[in-house]
Amino acid sequence: MSSYPTPILTTDRLTLRPLTMPDAADLFAVFADPLVVRYWSAEPWTSVSFAETAIRQALDAYRDGSEVRFGIELADTGVLAGTVNLHHFFPQNRRCEIGYALASAYWGKGYATEALEAALDYGFHELRLNRVEADIDPRNAASAAVLERMGFRKEGYMPERWIVHGEMADTVNYGLLRSYWDARA
Rank of each mutant, 00 (worst) to 15 (best):
R161C: 01
A51H: 05
S3Q: 13
D26Q: 04
E73T: 05
V84N: 02
V48C: 09
P34G: 05
R63C: 13
Y39M: 08
T53H: 10
D26C: 04
A145K: 13
H125S: 12
K154Q: 14
E114F: 00
L59D: 14
R17S: 06
Y157L: 10
P91M: 02
D23T: 00
Y62N: 11
Y174D: 05
D33W: 02
D135K: 05
Y180E: 15
D121G: 15
Y122P: 08
Y157S: 05
S49L: 14
P5K: 11
R161W: 13
A183L: 14
W181K: 03
D12L: 01
E114G: 00
Y157M: 05
L177W: 05
L147E: 09
F31Q: 03
L177M: 11
F70K: 03
N173A: 14
K154F: 12
E97C: 10
N130R: 12
V36K: 04
N140K: 02
D12N: 11
D23M: 09
A101K: 00
P44T: 07
D23H: 07
L74Y: 01
I136E: 10
R149P: 02
K109N: 04
M150E: 13
L120E: 06
E148T: 13
D64T: 09
E114Y: 08
S49F: 08
L9I: 00
E148I: 02
E148W: 07
L59G: 00
A42I: 15
A119P: 04
V36W: 02
S143H: 08
G108L: 06
Y62P: 11
A54L: 01
P159T: 09
H165V: 10
Y111H: 04
W107Y: 03
A61H: 15
A42Y: 09
V172C: 14
Y106S: 01
L127Y: 08
F28I: 06
I136T: 11
D64H: 14
E148C: 03
S179L: 12
L86T: 02
V164L: 04
R94D: 03
S47N: 15
L16R: 02
G151N: 09
W40F: 15
L59C: 08
E117N: 11
S179K: 10
M168W: 14
D26K: 01
S49Q: 14
T20H: 03
A58E: 04
A115G: 00
S47L: 02
A103F: 03
M21E: 14
R69L: 12
L80K: 05
E160T: 08
R95A: 05
A58T: 13
N85Y: 00
L80I: 11
S2P: 10
L120Q: 02
N130D: 13
P22R: 07
C96K: 02
W40S: 13
H88I: 00
Y122A: 08
A119V: 10
P34I: 05
P44C: 11
